[in-house]
Design a protein around this nucleic acid. Structure first.
Length: 455
DNA sequence: TTTTGAGTTGTTCGA
DNA sequence: GTCGAACAACTCAAA
């Protein structure tokens, strides 16, 4: 009997356990007929920025090409569309990979029930993680809440070897595919390369070059020292265990493995605490004093547009606007600024990031923000407040990153660009004045943190 | 059960 | 300019 493969966040053919399962099941029970489908979810799509939309469209085109053009694209609600495709294909099974977000779990439960009403089974195989969320537990069978012990447990748990592609099969198109949306990118935004082949090309490049200096250079905003694999991982264009099996034990490789483990740790934390997609992991922080009203709104607007008057922060926010991506170090600095300098709630910043980031993933995004806000995992120093000037001087020592994204500061040479207020011509090209004084707001943040500690 | 050691990513101040 | 200590105290993991 035919099967259906439903692609979601696993837009690849290699090392795709769900795709393999769909093919093998179809072969075992028939002639190996498989329908391939994916969704443009009409509820989610309009909430995304153009960079993210364009990336998904490009990635789906790449996937379609590697499936001989047989990928059926549907538009609407998966609760309707998956059933429609499965019935049209006369399938007995729909295959997909596990989605561990709250929204995904609920959606898959509902789709599973709707399919069952037609006598069709929803079969979930594999996930986008080396170790599925929920699998790594302490000896007392409760989940970890601290990264380092989790990492040790995760390593000890281990993972399966990559699964070689068993296709192609007898592809079919049971219903017409809708055209992929045409996404107009904002002026000046560059389209980034999407798809499985590009993910592997980038991985090979990083393996042979970047990973050697990864530990030292990953924090430098002005250099290409990161893996730049986050978006490929987010959309499942490559499976993390494909990367892990190629990784050795040099300092750079060890550090990169730990970064992959962070992704798995946050997925695990979110799985065990699904409410933390919107709520504070540490509930005490919900009681903290946050700014609201017209001034707070105006400051948030300035932050989103890269007009806070702090060059390193503004460069990051403009990189986000123009590229749909931001350097990891700068994400922390900009997030810290929103929470500690503007006294706004992390959810507001996280929502902005989620809309614009091509690599936006609920677990990594929300818990990265919670970590910065001090309410997440790692109860460490509550006084960890980033100084936006010092961070700029340290991680963009020549000011190249700032000048790249802020034309109003291009006339300033070297690291002086991080403090335009010290220069007679600092504002000559119309750069924004500082909206707050970091030293004042730092003290204010410490005061508000004190207040919730005493409760 | 109790105790002990440790916790991604920082900043400031004073010597 | 560099360096170490202080910041202030909590939760988690493991012995």
């Amino acid at each position: 009997m035919p099967t259906v493969m439903w692609f979601r966040r696993d837009l690849r053919v290699n090392d795709n356990p769900a795709l393999n399962a769909a093919i093998e099941s179809a072969r075992e029970s028939g002639d190996g007929t498989v329908a391939l489908m994916t969704m443009i979810d009409s509820a989610l799509w309009p909430t995304w920025g153009a960079a993210k939309q364009a990336y998904l469209v490009d990635s789906l085109q790449e996937l379609n090409a590697s499936l001989d053009g047989y990928l059926t694209v549907c538009h609407g609600d998966p609760r309707d569309e998956v059933v429609r495709v499965a019935v049209a294909a006369n399938a007995t099974e729909v295959h997909c990979a596990a989605d561990f977000t709250t929204i995904g779990i609920e959606r898959d439960r509902e789709v599973g029930e709707l399919l069952a009403a037609h006598g069709i089974k929803l079969v979930i195989t594999g996930s986008g993680y080396a170790v599925a969320p929920g699998r790594v537990l302490k000896p007392d069978a409760t989940p970890y809440r601290v990264y380092t012990p989790f990492y040790k447990g995760w390593l000890a748990h281990g993972w399966r070897a990559a699964a070689p592609y068993v296709g192609p099969a007898q592809w079919i198109s049971p219903v017409p595919s809708v055209p992929l949306p045409a996404v107009a990118l904002p002026v000046g935004m560059q389209r980034s390369l999407a798809g499985e082949a590009e993910a592997m090309r980038r991985w090979e490049e990083f393996r042979s070059n970047g990973v050697r200096d990864y530990k030292e250079l990953r924090d430098r905003a002005d250099l290409d020292g990161t893996s730049r694999l986050s978006t490929h991982l987010k959309w499942g264009e490559v499976h993390p265990r494909t990367l892990l099996q190629d990784l050795g034990d040099s300092p750079g490789e060890e550090h990169f493995r730990k970064e992959l483990a962070w992704r798995e740790f946050y997925a695990d934390v979110l799985f065990h605490n699904p409410h933390t997609i919107t709520e504070y992991l540490n509930p005490a922080f919900a009681e903290m004093e946050y700014d609201r009203g017209p001034i707070a709104d105006a400051r948030f607007e300035a932050w989103t547009q890269g007009k806070t008057g702090y060059p390193f922060v503004d460069a990051g926010m403009r990189q986000l606007l123009t590229e749909g991506w931001m350097h990891n170090r700068v994400r922390m600095v900009t997030a810290s600024f929103l929470v500690k300098d503007l006294h706004l709630e992390w959810q507001q910043g996280a929502a902005w990031f989620f809309e614009l980031l091509k690599d936006a993933d609920y677990a990594s995004n929300q818990h990265g923000w919670q970590w910065t806000a001090g309410c997440g995992t790692d109860a460490a120093p509550y006084f960890r407040i980033f100084n936006p000037v010092m961070q700029g001087q340290k991680f963009d020592p020549d000011g190249e990153y700032v000048r790249k994204y802020i034309p109003e500061l291009r006339h300033i040479e070297g690291s002086k660009v991080h403090e335009p207020w010290l220069l007679p011509d600092g504002y000559a090209q119309g750069y924004a004045e500082r909206i707050v004084d970091h030293h004042v707001e730092r003290d204010e943040s410490l005061r508000r943190l004190q207040a919730i500690k005493r409760d």
